[in-house]
Design a protein around this nucleic acid. Structure first.
Length: 581
RNA sequence: GGGCGAUUAGCUCAGUGGAUAGAGCGCUGGUCUCCGGAACCAGAGGUCGCGCGUUCAAAUCGCGCAUCGCCCGCCA
């Protein structure tokens, strides 16, 4: 949906840059505004400002290709009933480029438009010539954005929750890049502090237990089985009998964290997720960036000491209260390094930063924004997307997980069981802000209950049709002009309309940060195609490959375009588009 | 107690100002001498948690209430 402002130039000079649905909306808007202006001049309507109206693609096919609520929004200023205004507009419509086939007044005063079929055929040509680039656009041009996601501690394997963040972040990055943004994908490694120490202690204990099963295990240590695996792997490199305990624990920390990080990288590459930057927290300390930032903050008067600790005055910028960044015992809090990390992002020249965090960190958002504002970073520079919990179901039972206790399902286990495509798809079917139930049994089924197959099947089916066409020696001409007019079925126009929405959908996803809309879109497109295909099972003339040569070519072109859009969409989701299933 | 989020069909969820509120699964009944049935069609199923307000128009915006989840540390 696009809102228009009458104060903008009435000339559609940017129309040449837009395509598909956008272009048509602009053209309709131009017609509407020209018409209204004409009505003003002839005193058919009294001259008033135009309110915010909408030109949208209606869900109901009876409502035409496009609809506007302009007459409804004009009603109060004109002091006329909406249907009366609609009638005036319809009667005086200035459609100089002959875009419209039909216009109707409907409901309380909507105007429904039907576009001439010829307009839709240009969409088809556009898809075929653009191919892999269909949907690509430039709305992000000159924008450099950093997307930080997952950022798991290297103290254990990635689990389900990380998987959701991984699928979301990766797909968002793919879409943003496709929309022209300069995207940097970043993983912040919490490789300093207490939890790494705890990892070392846990490994060390398991190491000692190899000889002495009675050796105590740290109360708050990591109980997962993987710690024993780490201990075994490290056992060949460390002999705890030959070095002081402290040194051994330190080595366990270092080795353990390195191995875990490699595991994480491996799991992510299997999950088709890549990063440009692995940003190490400990570098912030080693490079003295943190110290420098503290000096700056002190100079700006945002820090103060109280009760032996160092505080930052975040409450000046909307946080509930001030926060400690250096504890009484001289240790920095995590918040300190997080501030420094985000300042560093800002210094690196990103016009926008996006973080994907678990929803349990939501209370953290105001404080990091406040800290940034003490450095004059605007509040909306950082967008934080919060992802809710994933609940895992198996055999009708919820599987409860706890990292500390060590019973959790890892991302790798899940991927091994149901496959990357299905896991990614399911993670992207829900808004990130609502909890997600992942039913393993359903996703494992290789049948229609599995949502990802539905879309992939449409792709494989089209490939199959092309194989068949090839067998019969049917080829597509370079120039489709003259034959596309044969596409007159309502189902064919529906497909064209749906595909025309693809570029603007991607723009909207970039603006709203809602990648899950792409899975819905692809499901709808696949559905429209399956329905179209099934027309041919009843009536032979409706088959894509028929006796009518030119009609067959036109329909193959249409099916080929659907294949392109599905393939491009799946690529953005990081999901394969199989030719056979 | 305060904050954030949620509440839509039997279940899991889409839908942020418009027309008869949608999808998948489940349920009932249909479509195969087939270009792939991993598909399609039809049907049943809803006081959009409750109330008040704003608006020509509210699932959608505001206020209040209820229920659920999460957060509220000089932990990470």
């Amino acid at each position: 949906m696009v809102r228009y402002n009458i104060l903008r130039s009435a000339v559609c000079h940017w129309a040449s840059k837009c395509k598909g649905i956008h272009l048509m909306k602009r053209e309709i808007d131009y017609i509407l505004r020209t018409t209204i202006e004409n009505c003003f001049e002839r005193n058919l309507l009294s001259r008033t400002d135009l309110p915010g109206y909408v030109i949208e693609v209606p869900g109901n096919p009876d409502h035409g290709h496009f609809a506007t609520n302009l007459p409804l929004t004009l009603a109060s200023a004109q002091k006329l009933p909406p249907r009366k205004i609609a009638l005036i507009i319809a009667d005086n419509l200035k459609d100089e480029s002959n875009l419209l086939e039909k216009i109707e007044i409907a409901g309380p005063g909507f105007l429904n438009f039907r576009i001439r079929l010829g307009k839709w055929y240009s969409v088809l040509s556009d898809i075929i010539t653009s191919g892999k680039d269909y949907g690509r656009n430039k709305i992000g041009e000159n924008e450099k954005v950093v997307v930080e996601f997952i950022s798991a501690n290297p103290t254990g394997p990635l689990h389900l929750g990380h998987g959701r963040g991984a699928a979301l972040g990766d797909t968002l990055c793919r879409i943003l890049s496709f929309c022209g943004y300069d995207v940097v994908r970043e993983f912040y490694i919490n490789d300093a502090g207490q939890q790494i120490r705890l990892l070392g202690e846990s490994i060390f204990s398991r190491l000692m237990q190899m000889k002495n099963p009675e050796y105590p295990f740290p109360e708050s240590g990591y109980h997962g089985e993987y710690i024993r695996d780490l201990a075994e792997e490290i056992a060949g490199q460390i002999n705890p009998d030959l070095m002081p305990k402290e040194e051994a624990i330190e080595m366990c920390s270092q080795k353990g964290k390195e191995i875990m990080l490699e595991d994480i990288k491996h799991d992510l590459s299997v999950f088709r997720v890549s990063f440009d930057v692995w940003y190490s927290e400990s570098d912030l300390y080693d490079s003295s960036k943190l110290d420098n930032d503290l000096e700056t903050m002190k100079g700006n008067g945002h820090l103060y000491e109280e009760d032996g600790a160092l505080w930052i005055r975040t409450s000046d910028y909307g946080d509930d209260k001030d926060r400690v960044i250096k504890k009484k015992d001289g240790q920095f809090t995590y918040f300190a390094s997080d501030i420094s990390y985000h300042l560093d992002k800002h210094k690196r020249g990103f016009s926008k930063a996006i973080n994907i965090w678990g929803a349990d960190h939501h209370g953290y958002v105001p404080r990091i924004k406040a800290a940034l504002m003490t450095h004059s970073v605007p509040e909306n520079w950082l967008s934080v997307m919060l992802i809710q919990l994933v609940k895992l179901w198996k055999s009708g039972q919820e599987i409860k997980m706890s990292k500390r206790a060590g019973n959790f399902v890892t991302l790798q286990e899940l991927v091994d069981e149901v496959g990357v495509d299905a896991v990614r798809f399911v993670f992207l079917t829900k808004n990130h802000d609502s909890t997600l139930d992942f039913d393993i049994d359903m996703v494992k089924k290789q049948d229609s209950e599995n949502p990802v197959y539905y879309v992939q099947y449409a792709h494989a089916r089209i490939c199959s049709i092309f194989r068949k066409a090839e067998e019969e020696g049917i080829t597509l001409p370079d120039n489709l002009e003259g034959i596309l007019e044969l596409l007159v079925l309502e189902e064919e126009v529906t497909l064209l309309r749906k595909m025309a929405e693809f570029p603007s959908l991607l723009e909207e996803i970039s603006n709203t940060l809602e990648p899950h809309r792409l899975t819905y879109y692809l499901t709808e497109l696949a559905s429209s195609f399956h329905r179209y295909f099934n027309l041919g099972t009843k009536i032979a003339e409706n088959r894509i490959i028929s006796q009518h040569k030119d009609l067959t070519r036109a329909r193959l072109a249409l099916a080929g375009a659907v294949r392109i859009v599905i393939s491009n969409g799946l690529e953005l989701l990081g999901i394969s588009a199989p030719e056979r299933m």
